[in-house]
Structure formats: structure tokens, C-alpha cells
Amino acid sequence: MQIGEVAARTELSLRTIRHYEETGLVTPSARSQGGFRLYTEADVQRLMVIRRMKPLGFTLDQMRDLLDATDQLDSDTASDAAEHDALLERVRAFEQAANEQVAKLRVQLSRAEEFAAALSTRLRQDASAARL
């Protein structure tokens, strides 16, 4: 699929996808005869991983590290059980960091919802007082 379809499926801008290509996070699987980037389903899934990591505050280097570890696990290039376990540990560290960020975001969301509710209450009180 071409970059426009990938952008629509991933909800990423063309510019963002190109940026991720420039930084080495994702590479189009092929080019058309006209030079257009062509992506596979695996490329889309890779972009989805990146898209999910971004709001959790992961850096491009961290994204690259996780993608490298999962690529190695997927291709089973670990030379022995110890290397395989080390790759799994890297992924577990990202899982833990993601869970910690999600917990922080839940607290922030709860506070934001409390604030919005307080504003709504205030506006209703003022509207009631104005009618009296």
C-alpha cells in the first residue's frame, strides 16, 4: 500500500511517517516503479507500535530499541538461550515503563475530569443564582 493509505490506517501524517523513515524507525518494504513508497501490513504494525509509544513519552531511541528487540525475537536471531532471555527482559522493561506511564496518565485524566466537573458545577451555580 502507498503512504497515503498507511497514513489513513495509522492516523499518522505523511510528514510523521517520512520522519520515522528518516530516523530509521520504519523503512518502506519496496518502491513502485515511479519511486513511491510501498508498505506491507508488517510495516503498518510497526508504525502502530511507534504511534502507541509516542503518547507514553518514549523517545525515538527507546522506540528503536524496543523495535530492535522485537525484530530479533520475531526473526529468532538470538544465538543462544541467554541472548533470547536478554531480549525478553528488554521487552519486559518496556512493558513495565508503559504500565507506569499509563498509571500516571490515569491520575492526570482523573484530575482533569475533576477539574471539568468543578467548572460545570460552578457554572450551574452561577446560572441558578442569576435567575433568582
Rank of each mutant, 00 (worst) to 15 (best):
G4V: 06
G4F: 00
E5I: 01
V6R: 01
A7S: 08
A7R: 01
A8W: 00
T10Q: 00
E11Y: 00
S13V: 01
L14S: 04
L14Y: 00
R15S: 05
T16V: 05
R18Q: 02
H19P: 01
E21W: 00
E22Q: 11
T23I: 08
T23W: 00
L25I: 02
P28M: 05
A30Q: 04
A30L: 01
S32R: 02
G34V: 03
G34C: 04
G35E: 03
F36M: 03
F36S: 04
L38Q: 09
Y39W: 03
Y39D: 02
T40W: 01
E41N: 07
E41T: 05
E41I: 01
D43N: 08
V44T: 06
V44W: 01
Q45D: 10
R46V: 04
L47C: 06
M48F: 03
V49I: 12
R51F: 01
R52N: 11
K54R: 15
G57H: 10
G57V: 08
G57S: 09
F58V: 08
F58Q: 03
D61C: 02
D65M: 12
L67Y: 05
L67Q: 09
D68H: 11
A69C: 10
D71S: 14
D71N: 14
Q72E: 15
Q72Y: 05
L73K: 09
D74H: 05
S75C: 09
S75V: 09
S79N: 12
S79L: 13
D80R: 06
D80A: 08
A81M: 12
A81C: 05
A82N: 11
A82F: 12
A82S: 13
A82G: 07
H84Y: 14
R90V: 14
R90H: 07
F94L: 10
E95V: 15
Q96G: 05
A97V: 09
A98G: 09
N99H: 13
N99L: 15
E100C: 03
V102L: 14
A103L: 11
A103M: 07
L109N: 11
L109H: 11
A112G: 11
E113Y: 10
E113A: 13
E113S: 14
E114I: 07
F115W: 11
F115K: 14
A118Q: 12
L119F: 07
L119V: 15
L119I: 15
T121Y: 11
R122L: 14
R122F: 12
R122K: 12
L123R: 11
R124N: 12
Q125G: 06
